[in-house]
């Protein structure tokens, strides 16, 4: 097995005619799948001042008197405030991992991530959402200004095509910078292999604490899930450059699988506890299937 070459050259035909046909088909399929949803309507998860009643809660000092339900007070002699949800235009923020570890696998995890970002962006633009795309590796890097409307698809694809993999992942710092950028709550989709030793939880927490809805999409290659390694090897870490001398055999492969399963279970469990939507995929799965099937099942698109 060989990984993609480090700092690979841009792939000019990443979004070729075939991809665009599949994207069009995705548009047609997505339109049917999202039928019934009013355009521009995205229900925020934030409660408070809005138009649609959502729930009651006990009055707390500092609450606006205007939201006290006086009928309940007259009947039960208890101060209760009414909560509402607001409806606002959604900002879809696509954060793509451009670290060196993404440049691995056949097909490359990075290509898969870019196609996935293009597909999600396409859907967002199709529904007149604001689409923001940025990248991160050792630092957060801003992309083009917020895109709105289908006409911005070309800008999105050009930006994604021009991306390169380089550097190591500093998840904590990069996502903190991302969280601090821009205004208002967003749906932040982090597309990465999450191949980091530390800082992952802190980075995702930084996004959550800013009020964003966070979706963690983990992209793994088949070579990582079932590595076809055997014999005396020097294993080179794509990000750190460290070399590990190992004679790989069935026993070592089994141990690796155990460690990988443990890591994936731990990440999934942490996301579940933290209210972060988690989705794991392999580069062997067609990205449009992932978008339609998995995203709808996970209700990321409503």
């Amino acid at each position: 097995m060989t990984g993609a070459s480090a700092g690979s050259d841009p792939e000019p035909l990443l979004f070729d005619a075939e991809f665009l046909r599949r994207l069009e088909r995705l548009e047609w399929v997505a339109r049917r799948a999202l039928r019934g949803l009013p355009r521009g309507e995205r229900r925020t998860a934030r409660r408070g001042r809005g138009l649609e009643f959502d729930d009651f809660r006990r009055y707390q000092p500092g609450d606006d008197f205007r939201y006290i339900d006086w009928n309940i007070f007259s009947r039960l002699d208890r101060l209760v405030v009414k909560l509402y949800t607001s409806e606002e235009d959604m900002t879809l923020h696509l954060a793509v991992d451009c670290s060196a570890s993404m440049d691995f696998g056949e097909p490359s995890k990075f290509d898969y991530a870019r196609r996935l970002a293009a597909a999600l962006g396409f859907i967002g633009l199709h529904h007149l959402d604001r689409v923001v795309v940025t990248t991160f590796a050792d630092a957060h890097r801003a992309g083009p200004p917020a895109l709105v409307g289908r006409r911005q698809l070309t800008t999105l694809l050009d930006f994604l095509s021009a991306l390169r993999c380089a550097g190591s992942t500093r998840f904590d710092a990069s996502l903190r910078e991302l969280a601090a950028s821009g205004r208002g709550a967003r749906l932040v989709v982090v597309i990465s292999d999450f191949s980091v030793d530390r800082g992952l939880e802190e980075g995702l927490d930084a996004l959550r604490h800013r009020g964003h809805d966070v979706v963690a999409m983990q992209v793994l290659s088949e070579e990582e899930i079932a590595p076809p390694l055997d014999g005396a090897l020097e294993l080179v870490d794509a990000e750190s450059g460290e070399v590990l001398r190992a004679t790989v055999d069935a026993r070592l492969r089994a141990l690796y699988q155990e460690r990988l399963d443990e890591a994936l279970r731990a990440l999934e469990a942490w996301c579940l506890r933290s209210g972060v939507e988690y989705l794991r995929t392999s580069t062997a799965i067609a990205f449009e299937d992932l978008v339609l099937k998995y995203l709808r099942q996970s209700a990321h698109l409503r």
Binding site: G3, S101, S195, E224, L235, V236, L244, R259
Partner: peptide, 14 residues
């Protein structure tokens, strides 16, 4: 034979 991997962290643990 030298093989480039996305990460060798899990291999190190194994």
């Amino acid at each position: 034979r030298r093989v480039r991997l996305a990460s060798t962290a899990l291999w190190g643990e194994a």
